[in-house]
Amino acid sequence: MESRNTHLAVGMFVILGVLAMLFLGLRAANTSTVTNGDTYKLFAKFDNIGGLKERSPVKVGGVVVGRVSAITLDGTYYEPLVEMTISKRYSEFSDTSSVSILTSGLLGEQYIGLNPGFIDDTVEILGDGDFVYDTKSALVLEDLIGQFLFGQGKD
């Protein structure tokens, strides 16, 4: 009987090791709390997404309301198409809203800032699968420096 307990303990030990390996290998466990409940999808096309990644946060005024769920190239012009999964709790964004790719801090991660638009009788509320048309791309430092130098030359 004692040897059976030993075998049991060793078996648990090995299983624990395999589980740890799975955790390390897959770590993809969905740990985001915002997008765990009911969600809907919004799309936005950008010229340049910079360093945006899947699972980057979507924020309204700094508050996380959703996540980037996919980034693909779309259409004949190869525009980056970003799919955002937004929590149903925040489902009243109008189609005058705009999205921009922002950076947290000087070296931080990039995220999507969503600016809610005004609401009156003529605008519609964004639903599942709708596009946000007013987009601002990520700032690329080299482009900025290029523009700056170009502007200097004209003076």
Binding site: L16, G17, L19, A20, M21, F23, L24, R27, A28, A29, T31, S32, T33, K53, E54, R55, S56, P57, V64, R67, E109, Y111
Partner: peptide
């Protein structure tokens, strides 16, 4: 392997649960 997995969880506990690093960004 167990050490590394538990250590990552410890870093997650302090970084995300206590100090407020963004959950999704931490893993992504």
């Amino acid at each position: 392997t167990i050490f590394s997995a538990v250590g990552i969880y410890g870093g997650y506990l302090v970084g995300v649960q206590w100090l407020g690093v963004d959950d999704g960004a931490f893993w992504s």
